[in-house]
Design a protein around this nucleic acid. Structure first.
Lengths: 150, 150
DNA sequence: AATTATATTGGACTAAATCCTATGTGTCAA
DNA sequence: TTGACACATAGGATTTAGTCCAATATAATT
């Protein structure tokens, strides 16, 4: 088992490599944004990350946070979570996994499932499209919002 | 096999019943919005539907289109499609089906698949949450946008 | 046809996201 | 270590989605 510290340093290492390989400079802003995203588990929006970083980094701009998160997505450091119409939300978890989303409070919960992972892409789809992501998406009410009208 | 006309009239019938059962009056606006949505297959946003209806209904308001589409969702006449951060998009197809979404042009394609339909909800999830929707979500490049940089 | 509760309009407002340009700063090479 | 340059950021302006509100209009019911 790997210690938290090492996981964290591996993460930063990965981040720096990805930047270098894509010709992006390693700026304090990008580091802060990466750290914030990597340590989050609630699939934060750009605004949420922006507000957190602002607590200690007093003049980072929202535009930078937005732009950087999209860049992270492009170079494979983050995923954009499906979230029908609300602000974009980002996911540092690059491993194959699945989502439950509460239609009431918007919470998104990751879960793993071997059967879901094993799903094959239908022939017809595979022939026509290039598939980059495969995910089962469940929707409903979370434990807190359980009752539809609660 | 049912004729197009009958399918269509069944649709309208279903719409009117759903309204009545939910104490909603049947207004020309709602009829127009329902017809437009029901006859669409590209998972339109409120803005798209608004613009189409405007062609013949010159003073319907965008607010009404938005509000009505959300109402349709609430009373089970439409679904809101997962679409990571872009404007909400609506789906008249109430049957269990799955989605491919092009990350480049945003096109969303419905498809059917028996194996996907048959997926069971994991115990742990079922215990904790109330599941209302289950869908496989594929993402990548469509036939038109096939090449990642094209 | 009158009544009433509900719906719509259009403009104002809020919030997300992007664009723009002047300024600032990593990076690389000497 | 420094200097030069390409790249990145800040902050304000702009665009776009979406919602709110109050006045008006209208569908449903009697």
């Amino acid at each position: 088992m790997v210690s938290k510290v090492n996981e964290y340093e591996n993460g930063l290492h990965h981040f720096e490599n990805a930047c270098r390989q894509n010709g992006l400079s390693i700026t304090p802003q990008r580091i802060a944004i990466f750290k914030e995203l990597a340590s989050s588990s609630e699939h934060p929006s750009a605004a949420v990350i922006f507000r957190k970083i602002r607590e200690y980094y007093d003049n980072i701009s929202l535009d930078t946070v937005n732009r950087t998160l999209l860049t992270f997505h492009e170079i494979g450091l983050a995923k954009v979570v499906e979230s029908s119409g609300d602000p974009k939300r980002f996911d540092p978890n690059l491993a194959l996994h699945h989502h439950f989303r509460c239609v009431k409070c918007g919470k998104i919960v990751d879960f793993e499932n071997a059967a879901y992972d094993a799903l094959e892409i239908p022939r017809a789809i595979q022939k026509k499209f290039v598939i980059r992501e495969k995910r089962v998406h469940l929707e409903g009410f979370c434990d807190t919002c359980r009752s539809p009208d609660g």
